[in-house]
Design a protein around this nucleic acid. Sequence first.
RNA 1: GGCGCUAUCGUCUAACGGUUAGGACGUAGCCCUCUCAAGGCUGAAAUACGGGUUCGAUUCCCGUUAGCGCUACCA
Length: 483
Amino acid sequence: MTDQSRPRVRFAPSPTGFLHVGGLRTALYNYLFARKTQGTFILRIEDTDRSRYVEGAVENLIATLAWSGLEFDEGPGKGGGSGPYIQSERLDIYRRHVDDLLAKKHAYHCFCTSDRLDEMRKQQEKMRIAPKYDRQCLRLPVGEVSGRLADGAQSVVRMRIPESATITIRDIIRGDVEFQSDRVDDQVLLKSDGYPTYHLANVVDDRLMGITHVIRGEEWLSSTPKHVLLYQFFGWDPPQFAHLPLLLNADRSKLSKRQGDVAVEDYRSAGYLPEGLVNFVALLGWNPGDEREIFSLAELVNEFSLERVGKAGAIFNVEKLKWVNQQHLRRLDAGVIVEKVKPILSRAGIAWGDDAYLRRVIGAMRDRLTSFDDFTSFALYFFSDPATYDEAAKKKNWSAESPAHLGALASKLEGDPDFSEGSLEGVVKAVAVEFTVSPGKIIHAVRLALSGMAIGPGLYELMTVLGRDTVLRRLRKASESLR
RNA sequence: GGCGCUAUCGUCUAACGGUUAGGACGUAGCCCUCUCAAGGCUGAAAUACGGGUUCGAUUCCCGUUAGCGCUACCA
Protein backbone atom coordinates (compact mmCIF):
# COMPACT_ATOMS: atom_id res chain seq x y z
CA MET A 1 0.00 0.00 0.00
CA THR A 2 1.35 3.38 -0.91
CA ASP A 3 0.52 6.37 1.23
CA GLN A 4 -1.32 8.76 -1.07
CA SER A 5 -0.45 11.84 0.96
CA ARG A 6 3.30 11.42 0.71
CA PRO A 7 5.36 12.49 -2.28
CA ARG A 8 6.92 9.91 -4.53
CA VAL A 9 9.80 10.91 -6.74
CA ARG A 10 12.16 9.06 -9.00
CA PHE A 11 15.59 9.28 -10.54
CA ALA A 12 15.33 7.70 -13.99
CA PRO A 13 18.72 7.39 -15.66
CA SER A 14 19.48 5.67 -18.91
CA PRO A 15 22.16 2.98 -18.60
CA THR A 16 24.42 4.34 -21.31
CA GLY A 17 27.63 4.68 -19.33
CA PHE A 18 28.78 6.19 -16.07
CA LEU A 19 26.75 8.39 -13.76
CA HIS A 20 27.27 11.98 -14.81
CA VAL A 21 27.71 14.70 -12.17
CA GLY A 22 24.61 16.35 -13.64
CA GLY A 23 22.78 13.08 -13.06
CA LEU A 24 24.11 13.02 -9.52
CA ARG A 25 22.70 16.48 -8.92
CA THR A 26 19.29 15.44 -10.30
CA ALA A 27 19.34 12.29 -8.17
CA LEU A 28 20.39 14.33 -5.14
CA TYR A 29 17.57 16.87 -5.44
CA ASN A 30 15.07 14.05 -5.82
CA TYR A 31 16.57 12.31 -2.82
CA LEU A 32 16.61 15.45 -0.68
CA PHE A 33 13.04 16.29 -1.59
CA ALA A 34 11.90 12.76 -0.76
CA ARG A 35 13.67 12.67 2.59
CA LYS A 36 12.63 16.18 3.53
CA THR A 37 8.97 15.42 2.85
CA GLN A 38 9.15 11.87 4.21
CA GLY A 39 8.32 10.68 0.75
CA THR A 40 9.68 7.85 -1.35
CA PHE A 41 12.73 7.94 -3.61
CA ILE A 42 12.58 5.50 -6.52
CA LEU A 43 15.26 4.41 -8.94
CA ARG A 44 13.99 3.48 -12.38
CA ILE A 45 16.16 2.35 -15.25
CA GLU A 46 15.16 3.73 -18.63
CA ASP A 47 16.75 1.27 -21.02
CA THR A 48 14.42 1.56 -23.98
CA ASP A 49 17.18 2.34 -26.45
CA ARG A 50 18.78 -0.99 -27.17
CA SER A 51 21.44 0.53 -29.36
CA ARG A 52 22.86 2.67 -26.58
CA TYR A 53 22.75 0.08 -23.83
CA VAL A 54 26.10 -0.40 -22.10
CA GLU A 55 26.86 -3.69 -20.39
CA GLY A 56 27.29 -3.26 -16.65
CA ALA A 57 25.97 0.29 -16.62
CA VAL A 58 23.06 -0.52 -14.33
CA GLU A 59 25.31 -2.13 -11.74
CA ASN A 60 27.70 0.80 -12.01
CA LEU A 61 24.88 3.32 -11.56
CA ILE A 62 23.66 1.57 -8.44
CA ALA A 63 27.15 1.26 -7.00
CA THR A 64 27.91 4.93 -7.65
CA LEU A 65 24.63 6.03 -6.09
CA ALA A 66 25.46 3.90 -3.07
CA TRP A 67 28.90 5.48 -2.81
CA SER A 68 27.30 8.90 -2.94
CA GLY A 69 25.06 7.99 -0.03
CA LEU A 70 21.82 8.40 -1.96
CA GLU A 71 19.88 5.38 -0.84
CA PHE A 72 16.75 4.65 -2.83
CA ASP A 73 13.60 3.11 -1.37
CA GLU A 74 12.34 1.24 -4.39
CA GLY A 75 14.16 0.08 -7.47
CA PRO A 76 16.12 -2.70 -9.14
CA GLY A 77 17.50 -5.13 -6.61
CA LYS A 78 15.56 -3.41 -3.88
CA GLY A 79 12.00 -4.23 -4.81
CA GLY A 80 8.90 -2.22 -3.99
CA GLY A 81 5.24 -2.33 -4.87
CA SER A 82 5.49 -0.74 -8.30
CA GLY A 83 8.00 -2.91 -10.09
CA PRO A 84 9.58 -4.01 -12.24
CA TYR A 85 11.76 -0.92 -12.18
CA ILE A 86 13.58 -1.64 -15.40
CA GLN A 87 11.67 -0.47 -18.45
CA SER A 88 12.77 -3.28 -20.72
CA GLU A 89 10.88 -5.59 -18.36
CA ARG A 90 7.66 -3.61 -18.78
CA LEU A 91 7.15 -3.89 -22.52
CA ASP A 92 3.71 -5.49 -22.25
CA ILE A 93 2.53 -2.60 -20.07
CA TYR A 94 3.52 -0.03 -22.69
CA ARG A 95 1.96 -2.14 -25.44
CA ARG A 96 -1.38 -2.15 -23.59
CA HIS A 97 -1.28 1.59 -23.15
CA VAL A 98 -0.46 2.16 -26.78
CA ASP A 99 -3.44 0.01 -27.75
CA ASP A 100 -5.61 2.12 -25.51
CA LEU A 101 -4.41 5.30 -27.24
CA LEU A 102 -4.93 3.71 -30.65
CA ALA A 103 -8.47 2.77 -29.71
CA LYS A 104 -9.19 6.30 -28.56
CA LYS A 105 -7.70 7.68 -31.81
CA HIS A 106 -5.06 9.62 -29.88
CA ALA A 107 -2.43 7.68 -31.74
CA TYR A 108 -1.96 6.16 -35.16
CA HIS A 109 0.27 3.78 -37.06
CA CYS A 110 2.95 5.22 -39.30
CA PHE A 111 4.68 3.24 -42.04
CA CYS A 112 7.02 5.93 -43.29
CA THR A 113 10.59 4.88 -43.84
CA SER A 114 13.43 6.78 -42.28
CA ASP A 115 14.53 7.70 -45.80
CA ARG A 116 11.24 9.40 -46.45
CA LEU A 117 11.34 11.15 -43.09
CA ASP A 118 14.86 12.39 -43.76
CA GLU A 119 13.83 13.66 -47.16
CA MET A 120 10.78 15.36 -45.68
CA ARG A 121 12.83 17.10 -43.04
CA LYS A 122 15.31 18.25 -45.63
CA GLN A 123 12.52 19.80 -47.67
CA GLN A 124 11.06 21.47 -44.59
CA GLU A 125 14.43 22.87 -43.72
CA LYS A 126 14.78 24.25 -47.24
CA MET A 127 11.36 25.86 -46.98
CA ARG A 128 12.43 27.18 -43.60
CA ILE A 129 9.51 25.72 -41.72
CA ALA A 130 9.59 23.80 -38.49
CA PRO A 131 10.47 20.14 -39.09
CA LYS A 132 7.39 18.15 -38.21
CA TYR A 133 5.87 14.89 -39.38
CA ASP A 134 3.52 15.65 -42.28
CA ARG A 135 0.86 13.14 -41.17
CA GLN A 136 0.86 11.22 -44.39
CA CYS A 137 -0.02 8.02 -42.55
CA LEU A 138 -2.77 9.66 -40.54
CA ARG A 139 -4.70 10.01 -43.80
CA LEU A 140 -4.40 6.34 -44.69
CA PRO A 141 -7.75 4.51 -45.03
CA VAL A 142 -8.48 2.21 -42.08
CA GLY A 143 -8.52 -0.83 -44.31
CA GLU A 144 -5.10 -0.12 -45.70
CA VAL A 145 -3.64 0.27 -42.24
CA SER A 146 -4.96 -3.05 -41.03
CA GLY A 147 -3.93 -4.67 -44.31
CA ARG A 148 -0.35 -3.49 -44.06
CA LEU A 149 -0.21 -4.45 -40.41
CA ALA A 150 -1.48 -7.92 -41.30
CA ASP A 151 1.20 -8.15 -43.96
CA GLY A 152 3.74 -7.54 -41.24
CA ALA A 153 4.89 -4.16 -42.54
CA GLN A 154 7.28 -2.25 -40.29
CA SER A 155 5.51 0.51 -38.42
CA VAL A 156 5.69 2.84 -35.46
CA VAL A 157 2.91 4.39 -33.43
CA ARG A 158 2.73 8.18 -33.26
CA MET A 159 0.74 10.32 -30.90
CA ARG A 160 -1.82 12.56 -32.53
CA ILE A 161 -1.25 16.09 -31.34
CA PRO A 162 -4.49 18.11 -31.23
CA GLU A 163 -4.69 21.23 -33.38
CA SER A 164 -4.60 24.79 -32.09
CA ALA A 165 -4.46 23.96 -28.44
CA THR A 166 -2.55 25.82 -25.79
CA ILE A 167 -0.73 23.58 -23.36
CA THR A 168 0.24 25.10 -20.05
CA ILE A 169 2.86 23.54 -17.86
CA ARG A 170 2.95 24.42 -14.20
CA ASP A 171 6.54 24.25 -13.18
CA ILE A 172 7.53 24.69 -9.54
CA ILE A 173 10.78 26.36 -10.52
CA ARG A 174 9.77 28.28 -13.64
CA GLY A 175 6.12 29.07 -13.11
CA ASP A 176 3.64 28.61 -15.96
CA VAL A 177 5.12 27.87 -19.37
CA GLU A 178 2.87 27.88 -22.44
CA PHE A 179 3.25 25.96 -25.68
CA GLN A 180 1.11 25.97 -28.82
CA SER A 181 0.22 22.44 -29.90
CA ASP A 182 0.72 23.31 -33.58
CA ARG A 183 4.44 23.52 -32.90
CA VAL A 184 4.52 20.05 -31.38
CA ASP A 185 5.48 17.10 -33.54
CA ASP A 186 3.47 13.86 -33.70
CA GLN A 187 5.92 12.10 -31.47
CA VAL A 188 6.70 8.43 -31.99
CA LEU A 189 5.50 6.51 -28.94
CA LEU A 190 6.25 2.96 -29.95
CA LYS A 191 9.27 2.18 -32.08
CA SER A 192 9.31 -0.43 -34.81
CA ASP A 193 11.33 -2.75 -32.57
CA GLY A 194 8.44 -2.84 -30.11
CA TYR A 195 10.16 -0.67 -27.51
CA PRO A 196 8.50 2.51 -26.32
CA THR A 197 10.18 5.89 -26.63
CA TYR A 198 11.13 7.85 -23.53
CA HIS A 199 7.98 9.96 -23.71
CA LEU A 200 5.51 7.10 -23.52
CA ALA A 201 7.41 4.93 -21.07
CA ASN A 202 8.13 7.86 -18.80
CA VAL A 203 4.52 9.00 -18.56
CA VAL A 204 3.10 5.53 -18.13
CA ASP A 205 5.65 4.59 -15.47
CA ASP A 206 5.36 7.83 -13.57
CA ARG A 207 1.62 7.26 -13.40
CA LEU A 208 1.82 3.58 -12.49
CA MET A 209 4.52 4.19 -9.92
CA GLY A 210 2.51 6.95 -8.30
CA ILE A 211 5.07 9.68 -8.97
CA THR A 212 3.84 12.98 -7.58
CA HIS A 213 6.75 15.25 -8.50
CA VAL A 214 8.85 15.00 -11.63
CA ILE A 215 12.19 16.61 -10.81
CA ARG A 216 14.48 16.45 -13.82
CA GLY A 217 16.87 18.46 -15.97
CA GLU A 218 15.81 21.49 -17.97
CA GLU A 219 16.54 19.69 -21.24
CA TRP A 220 13.14 18.04 -20.74
CA LEU A 221 11.14 21.21 -20.54
CA SER A 222 10.58 21.38 -24.30
CA SER A 223 9.09 17.91 -24.47
CA THR A 224 6.90 18.31 -21.43
CA PRO A 225 3.88 19.44 -23.53
CA LYS A 226 3.92 16.00 -25.13
CA HIS A 227 3.89 14.43 -21.71
CA VAL A 228 1.07 16.64 -20.50
CA LEU A 229 -0.94 15.70 -23.57
CA LEU A 230 -0.35 12.03 -22.90
CA TYR A 231 -1.67 12.42 -19.37
CA GLN A 232 -4.77 14.04 -20.90
CA PHE A 233 -5.17 11.26 -23.45
CA PHE A 234 -5.10 8.67 -20.71
CA GLY A 235 -7.42 10.72 -18.53
CA TRP A 236 -4.83 11.14 -15.79
CA ASP A 237 -3.88 14.13 -13.69
CA PRO A 238 -0.31 15.15 -14.44
CA PRO A 239 2.27 15.21 -11.63
CA GLN A 240 3.98 18.41 -10.53
CA PHE A 241 7.00 19.37 -12.58
CA ALA A 242 10.28 20.93 -11.49
CA HIS A 243 12.82 21.48 -14.24
CA LEU A 244 16.31 21.95 -12.86
CA PRO A 245 18.84 24.37 -14.34
CA LEU A 246 21.61 22.69 -16.32
CA LEU A 247 25.19 22.07 -15.24
CA LEU A 248 27.59 23.79 -17.60
CA ASN A 249 31.16 23.62 -18.88
CA ALA A 250 33.44 26.62 -18.34
CA ASP A 251 32.31 27.94 -21.75
CA ARG A 252 28.66 27.68 -20.67
CA SER A 253 27.76 24.80 -22.94
CA LYS A 254 25.95 21.83 -21.43
CA LEU A 255 28.39 19.95 -19.22
CA SER A 256 30.06 17.31 -21.28
CA LYS A 257 33.03 15.06 -21.56
CA ARG A 258 36.09 16.36 -23.35
CA GLN A 259 36.13 19.45 -21.15
CA GLY A 260 37.18 17.69 -17.98
CA ASP A 261 35.84 14.96 -15.79
CA VAL A 262 32.08 14.53 -15.78
CA ALA A 263 31.66 11.05 -14.35
CA VAL A 264 31.12 10.74 -10.62
CA GLU A 265 33.48 7.81 -10.95
CA ASP A 266 36.28 10.17 -12.00
CA TYR A 267 35.97 12.23 -8.84
CA ARG A 268 35.70 9.13 -6.74
CA SER A 269 38.94 7.75 -8.08
CA ALA A 270 40.60 11.15 -7.81
CA GLY A 271 40.13 10.81 -4.07
CA TYR A 272 37.20 13.12 -3.44
CA LEU A 273 34.88 12.41 -0.55
CA PRO A 274 31.29 11.56 -1.48
CA GLU A 275 30.07 14.10 1.06
CA GLY A 276 32.31 16.74 -0.52
CA LEU A 277 31.10 16.08 -4.05
CA VAL A 278 27.49 15.89 -2.93
CA ASN A 279 27.76 19.11 -0.94
CA PHE A 280 29.36 20.94 -3.84
CA VAL A 281 26.86 19.69 -6.39
CA ALA A 282 23.95 20.59 -4.08
CA LEU A 283 25.11 24.21 -4.16
CA LEU A 284 24.96 24.30 -7.95
CA GLY A 285 21.48 25.70 -8.36
CA TRP A 286 20.33 25.69 -4.77
CA ASN A 287 21.26 27.64 -1.65
CA PRO A 288 20.05 27.53 1.94
CA GLY A 289 19.11 31.20 2.06
CA ASP A 290 21.88 32.14 4.44
CA GLU A 291 25.64 32.10 4.22
CA ARG A 292 26.41 28.56 5.29
CA GLU A 293 28.05 26.40 2.65
CA ILE A 294 29.25 23.23 4.28
CA PHE A 295 26.61 20.59 4.86
CA SER A 296 26.43 16.89 5.53
CA LEU A 297 23.85 14.94 3.58
CA ALA A 298 21.57 14.90 6.62
CA GLU A 299 21.90 18.67 6.96
CA LEU A 300 21.07 19.12 3.30
CA VAL A 301 17.93 17.07 3.80
CA ASN A 302 16.98 19.34 6.62
CA GLU A 303 17.56 22.56 4.66
CA PHE A 304 16.37 21.60 1.20
CA SER A 305 13.40 23.04 -0.60
CA LEU A 306 12.53 23.19 -4.29
CA GLU A 307 11.49 26.82 -3.82
CA ARG A 308 15.12 27.77 -3.30
CA VAL A 309 16.30 26.17 -6.52
CA GLY A 310 17.45 28.74 -9.08
CA LYS A 311 16.68 29.00 -12.78
CA ALA A 312 20.00 29.76 -14.44
CA GLY A 313 22.55 27.15 -15.43
CA ALA A 314 25.64 26.76 -13.26
CA ILE A 315 29.24 26.16 -14.24
CA PHE A 316 30.91 23.19 -12.58
CA ASN A 317 33.91 24.84 -10.96
CA VAL A 318 36.50 22.33 -9.80
CA GLU A 319 38.38 24.90 -7.70
CA LYS A 320 35.40 25.37 -5.45
CA LEU A 321 34.83 21.63 -5.32
CA LYS A 322 38.37 21.25 -3.98
CA TRP A 323 37.68 23.75 -1.25
CA VAL A 324 34.38 22.15 -0.27
CA ASN A 325 36.03 18.74 -0.25
CA GLN A 326 38.84 20.06 1.91
CA GLN A 327 36.32 21.39 4.42
CA HIS A 328 34.81 17.92 4.71
CA LEU A 329 38.22 16.29 4.88
CA ARG A 330 39.17 18.43 7.83
CA ARG A 331 36.04 17.42 9.71
CA LEU A 332 36.85 13.75 9.34
CA ASP A 333 38.37 11.68 12.13
CA ALA A 334 41.98 10.63 11.38
CA GLY A 335 41.02 6.97 11.79
CA VAL A 336 38.37 7.34 9.11
CA ILE A 337 40.85 8.97 6.76
CA VAL A 338 43.27 6.09 7.32
CA GLU A 339 40.69 3.62 6.05
CA LYS A 340 39.79 5.79 3.07
CA VAL A 341 43.38 6.41 2.05
CA LYS A 342 44.51 2.78 2.18
CA PRO A 343 42.77 1.68 -1.03
CA ILE A 344 44.11 4.71 -2.84
CA LEU A 345 47.67 3.95 -1.72
CA SER A 346 47.35 0.28 -2.65
CA ARG A 347 46.07 1.15 -6.09
CA ALA A 348 49.09 3.42 -6.56
CA GLY A 349 51.39 0.63 -5.41
CA ILE A 350 52.51 2.45 -2.27
CA ALA A 351 53.32 0.49 0.91
CA TRP A 352 52.41 2.43 4.05
CA GLY A 353 53.78 0.22 6.84
CA ASP A 354 51.30 0.01 9.69
CA ASP A 355 48.10 1.92 10.46
CA ALA A 356 49.62 3.81 13.37
CA TYR A 357 52.28 5.24 11.07
CA LEU A 358 49.72 6.16 8.40
CA ARG A 359 47.70 7.88 11.06
CA ARG A 360 50.66 10.05 12.03
CA VAL A 361 51.31 10.92 8.40
CA ILE A 362 47.69 12.00 8.05
CA GLY A 363 47.98 14.05 11.21
CA ALA A 364 50.88 15.92 9.66
CA MET A 365 49.32 16.31 6.22
CA ARG A 366 45.59 16.75 6.71
CA ASP A 367 45.48 20.56 6.54
CA ARG A 368 47.40 20.37 3.30
CA LEU A 369 45.06 18.01 1.49
CA THR A 370 42.26 18.91 -0.88
CA SER A 371 41.64 15.33 -1.99
CA PHE A 372 43.26 11.97 -1.28
CA ASP A 373 44.98 12.16 -4.60
CA ASP A 374 47.39 14.59 -2.99
CA PHE A 375 48.93 11.64 -1.14
CA THR A 376 50.16 10.11 -4.34
CA SER A 377 51.52 13.41 -5.60
CA PHE A 378 53.22 15.27 -2.77
CA ALA A 379 53.35 12.96 0.22
CA LEU A 380 55.33 10.13 -1.32
CA TYR A 381 58.39 10.80 0.81
CA PHE A 382 56.55 9.49 3.86
CA PHE A 383 56.59 6.06 2.27
CA SER A 384 59.93 5.87 0.50
CA ASP A 385 63.21 7.80 0.43
CA PRO A 386 63.21 10.64 -2.08
CA ALA A 387 64.60 9.39 -5.38
CA THR A 388 65.18 12.88 -6.70
CA TYR A 389 65.48 16.33 -5.23
CA ASP A 390 63.48 19.29 -6.48
CA GLU A 391 65.85 21.44 -8.54
CA ALA A 392 64.45 24.81 -7.52
CA ALA A 393 64.51 23.81 -3.87
CA LYS A 394 68.08 22.58 -4.24
CA LYS A 395 69.20 25.85 -5.73
CA LYS A 396 67.54 27.82 -3.01
CA ASN A 397 68.14 25.71 0.09
CA TRP A 398 71.33 23.73 -0.49
CA SER A 399 74.85 25.10 -0.29
CA ALA A 400 78.43 23.87 -0.18
CA GLU A 401 78.31 23.90 3.63
CA SER A 402 75.12 21.89 3.86
CA PRO A 403 76.85 18.46 4.00
CA ALA A 404 78.87 19.61 6.99
CA HIS A 405 75.74 20.95 8.69
CA LEU A 406 73.84 17.74 8.12
CA GLY A 407 76.78 15.64 9.20
CA ALA A 408 77.01 17.50 12.50
CA LEU A 409 73.27 17.23 12.94
CA ALA A 410 73.31 13.51 12.27
CA SER A 411 75.92 12.78 14.91
CA LYS A 412 74.07 14.91 17.45
CA LEU A 413 70.80 13.12 16.65
CA GLU A 414 72.36 9.76 17.32
CA GLY A 415 72.91 10.91 20.86
CA ASP A 416 69.45 12.45 21.31
CA PRO A 417 67.54 10.02 23.51
CA ASP A 418 63.97 11.27 23.12
CA PHE A 419 63.82 12.44 19.48
CA SER A 420 60.82 14.64 20.27
CA GLU A 421 59.80 17.86 18.57
CA GLY A 422 61.18 19.79 21.52
CA SER A 423 64.54 18.03 21.63
CA LEU A 424 64.91 18.18 17.86
CA GLU A 425 64.42 21.91 17.85
CA GLY A 426 67.17 22.19 20.46
CA VAL A 427 69.53 20.05 18.42
CA VAL A 428 68.93 21.94 15.17
CA LYS A 429 69.45 25.27 16.91
CA ALA A 430 72.63 24.01 18.52
CA VAL A 431 74.01 23.12 15.08
CA ALA A 432 73.06 26.58 13.83
CA VAL A 433 74.95 28.17 16.71
CA GLU A 434 77.94 25.92 16.16
CA PHE A 435 78.26 27.01 12.54
CA THR A 436 77.04 30.53 13.23
CA VAL A 437 74.30 30.37 10.60
CA SER A 438 70.58 31.03 10.94
CA PRO A 439 68.43 28.09 12.00
CA GLY A 440 66.46 28.57 8.79
CA LYS A 441 69.50 27.67 6.75
CA ILE A 442 69.78 24.31 8.49
CA ILE A 443 66.05 23.71 8.51
CA HIS A 444 65.63 24.20 4.79
CA ALA A 445 68.52 21.94 3.90
CA VAL A 446 67.24 19.25 6.24
CA ARG A 447 63.76 19.46 4.74
CA LEU A 448 65.23 19.03 1.29
CA ALA A 449 67.25 16.04 2.44
CA LEU A 450 64.26 14.40 4.09
CA SER A 451 61.54 15.09 1.55
CA GLY A 452 63.24 16.12 -1.66
CA MET A 453 60.94 19.14 -1.68
CA ALA A 454 60.63 22.62 -0.29
CA ILE A 455 57.10 22.24 1.04
CA GLY A 456 55.50 20.15 3.73
CA PRO A 457 54.68 19.96 7.43
CA GLY A 458 56.75 21.64 10.13
CA LEU A 459 60.25 20.19 10.15
CA TYR A 460 60.23 18.84 13.70
CA GLU A 461 56.90 17.20 13.16
CA LEU A 462 58.19 15.72 9.92
CA MET A 463 61.25 14.32 11.68
CA THR A 464 59.29 12.70 14.50
CA VAL A 465 56.88 11.11 12.03
CA LEU A 466 59.69 9.70 9.89
CA GLY A 467 61.62 8.46 12.91
CA ARG A 468 65.28 8.42 13.80
CA ASP A 469 66.46 5.69 11.43
CA THR A 470 64.86 7.20 8.37
CA VAL A 471 66.00 10.70 9.24
CA LEU A 472 69.62 9.62 9.74
CA ARG A 473 69.59 7.55 6.56
CA ARG A 474 68.23 10.40 4.46
CA LEU A 475 70.56 12.99 5.97
CA ARG A 476 73.58 10.85 5.06
CA LYS A 477 72.26 10.02 1.66
CA ALA A 478 71.69 13.67 0.85
CA SER A 479 75.09 14.70 2.17
CA GLU A 480 76.71 12.25 -0.20
CA SER A 481 74.59 12.65 -3.30
CA LEU A 482 73.64 16.34 -3.20
CA ARG A 483 76.16 18.81 -4.42
C1' G B 1 15.43 28.80 -38.88
C1' G B 2 11.29 27.59 -35.18
C1' C B 3 9.85 26.96 -30.09
C1' G B 4 11.28 27.39 -25.07
C1' C B 5 14.36 28.74 -20.93
C1' U B 6 17.89 32.04 -18.76
C1' A B 7 20.67 36.77 -17.57
C1' U B 8 23.99 40.20 -10.14
C1' C B 9 31.70 40.25 -9.17
C1' G B 10 36.04 35.58 -13.42
C1' U B 11 32.87 31.39 -10.86
C1' C B 12 28.77 29.68 -7.28
C1' U B 13 25.26 32.87 -5.21
C1' A B 14 22.24 36.52 -1.43
C1' A B 15 19.20 40.76 -1.62
C1' C B 16 11.23 38.29 -2.83
C1' G B 17 10.52 47.96 -4.70
C1' G B 18 14.12 51.59 -0.41
C1' U B 19 21.08 47.92 1.37
C1' U B 20 27.59 51.79 1.37
C1' A B 21 24.41 45.53 -3.71
C1' G B 22 26.12 40.80 1.16
C1' G B 23 28.82 35.94 1.37
C1' A B 24 31.91 32.00 -0.66
C1' C B 25 35.72 30.02 -4.29
C1' G B 26 39.55 32.09 -6.94
C1' U B 27 42.78 36.41 -7.10
C1' A B 28 46.17 40.69 -4.96
C1' G B 29 48.49 42.53 -0.45
C1' C B 30 49.63 42.15 4.74
C1' C B 31 50.04 39.31 9.49
C1' C B 32 51.60 34.53 11.51
C1' U B 33 55.91 31.47 10.16
C1' C B 34 61.57 26.96 9.02
C1' U B 35 58.64 25.96 3.78
C1' C B 36 53.79 24.79 2.05
C1' A B 37 49.16 24.65 3.90
C1' A B 38 45.71 26.13 7.65
C1' G B 39 44.21 30.61 10.22
C1' G B 40 43.53 36.16 10.70
C1' C B 41 43.09 41.02 8.36
C1' U B 42 42.65 44.16 4.00
C1' G B 43 41.81 45.11 -1.34
C1' A B 44 40.23 44.76 -6.52
C1' A B 45 35.88 42.73 -8.74
C1' A B 46 28.92 42.52 -10.59
C1' U B 47 23.15 44.19 -11.32
C1' A B 48 24.04 42.84 -20.17
C1' C B 49 21.63 47.09 -22.94
C1' G B 50 17.29 50.32 -23.99
C1' G B 51 12.55 51.77 -22.79
C1' G B 52 8.56 51.97 -19.49
C1' U B 53 5.57 51.46 -14.36
C1' U B 54 6.75 53.84 -9.62
C1' C B 55 8.26 59.02 -5.10
C1' G B 56 11.94 55.06 -5.72
C1' A B 57 14.06 49.69 -9.58
C1' U B 58 18.96 44.28 -9.18
C1' U B 59 13.81 43.35 -8.02
C1' C B 60 7.65 44.42 -11.92
C1' C B 61 6.40 44.96 -17.56
C1' C B 62 8.06 45.37 -22.81
C1' G B 63 11.87 45.25 -26.37
C1' U B 64 17.02 44.30 -27.82
C1' U B 65 21.28 41.47 -27.19
C1' A B 66 23.73 37.24 -25.58
C1' G B 67 23.99 32.24 -23.79
C1' C B 68 21.81 27.64 -23.37
C1' G B 69 18.18 23.72 -24.29
C1' C B 70 14.84 21.20 -27.58
C1' U B 71 13.77 20.63 -32.65
C1' A B 72 15.33 11.59 -33.75
C1' C B 73 12.03 5.08 -34.35
C1' C B 74 18.32 9.05 -28.16
C1' A B 75 17.34 9.72 -23.44
